[in-house]
Computed example of a mutant assay.
Amino acid sequence: MSAISLLNASNASRAGSLGDGGGRAAATQFTQPGWQIALWALAYALVVAASVAGNVAVIWIVLAHRRMRTATNYFIVNLALSDLLMAAFNTSFNFIYASHNVWYFGEEFCRFQNWFPITAVFVSIYSMTAIAAERYVAIIHPFKPRLSAGSTGAIVGVIWLVAFGLAFPQCFYAEVTTDNGTTKCVVVWPDDVGRKHQLTYHVAVIVLIYLLPLVVMFVAYSIIGVTLWSSAVPGSHVNRTRYEHQVNAKKKLVKTMVVVVVVFAVCWLPYHVYFILGNFKEDIYQQKYIQQVYLAIFLLAMSSTMYNPIIYCCLNQRFRSGFRLAFRWCPCVKATEKDKLRLTSPSRYQTTYRKSKTSSFNMEMQFNEKT
């Protein structure tokens, strides 16, 4: 979402938008000094740069290395793509709007900015939900067939189509208006007496792109956690070693994704609270420091796009090796052959297991030949 997408979904009769930092025509009194805008611009620029660089690296790590092309990682690529597009097409433009209280970018881009942010956030959180569901099936029902590349692609396509549909009303009713000589990008809901349509849509969006998927992921990861951390280890030494390795790998992935979900929830919670308060207590937009409060809340929400690559790098060894390879051109980053092997070669446990199976098969064939 954006400074425009939900906060700005108001009647044209209102003097301004909730996402413009002040909310109404009186918002123009909140003009900031140049040094303050420069500090905010620097903070937003750092978020955009970190998000773009990190998410491009994540996409490259998965798509450029065959060993990384799993169903879970394809969903991670989808998550990285939505975060990348959010940072590139939403953060900067809405920062300019929120800090200047003037829409400079025309009606078509106004529609785009009311359509794309909801789409991107929906894709992000439902990619996380898809990962939770895929992990749930893989761990709780290990004998069920795993998702194929085609099935994963179909799920990704459905996520994007549903996201487009959910965001369409905002795009359809968005328009550029002039208020007291100031150009605004607003959403004009038809026949919206008492702003019932606006409130209903906002509540529905918050439930669908925040509350519902978080509840689903909480239940799924709770069941997965109980299953993994209470699982018994089989008897033989070979099976025990391989089983422990698999369980530990699954635990690490689950921990990583739980951190991703928690960070997302924390970053977006103040933004959604701001929406709810705005619908029931409009006078908060007339408060003296509301522009600074909004810019901080919006920055926190947009910063969610840059944390995931950092989390992958810190908690996942393969992604850490991938980041070393992606940024090996930096003087302070050193990539080794071991990093390349982690992304291209099967693990030693897989190799040992295959060798043991091959050895057992050969011994059985020799015994059959002798008998």
Rank of each mutant, 00 (worst) to 15 (best):
P234F: 00
C330M: 14
V203S: 02
N279L: 12
Y104G: 03
K340I: 12
F264Y: 14
A296N: 08
A12C: 12
V187Q: 09
G150M: 02
N248V: 07
S10V: 15
A326D: 08
Y312W: 14
V205Y: 01
E282R: 13
T344R: 03
S236K: 05
G54A: 05
L277H: 08
S236D: 14
G21R: 05
A12T: 15
F172H: 05
F323M: 13
T152K: 00
I155Q: 01
G21K: 08
Y312A: 07
W268L: 10
T200V: 10
N73M: 11
Y221L: 11
A249C: 13
G181I: 00
G34T: 13
V193P: 00
E134A: 15
T371A: 00
Y97K: 09
N101K: 05
F218L: 14
S82M: 08
S17E: 12
S51H: 03
P145C: 07
F168M: 12
G23T: 14
D283V: 15
A88Q: 06
A50T: 11
V158S: 01
V48F: 06
V102T: 09
M302V: 07
V162A: 10
R111Y: 04
L161G: 06
A265S: 13
Q287G: 15
E364R: 06
H197I: 12
T352W: 04
L208R: 00
I37T: 03
A9E: 06
C314H: 07
I311G: 10
H272T: 15
D83Q: 08
V216A: 10
C171Q: 11
A265K: 04
V247R: 15
Y104K: 11
S2G: 13
A57H: 09
S10F: 02
W35I: 14
F218K: 08
G106K: 07
V121M: 03
F172I: 07
A138Q: 15
S359K: 05
A132P: 09
D179K: 13
I155V: 14
K355Y: 09
Y210Q: 01
V261S: 06
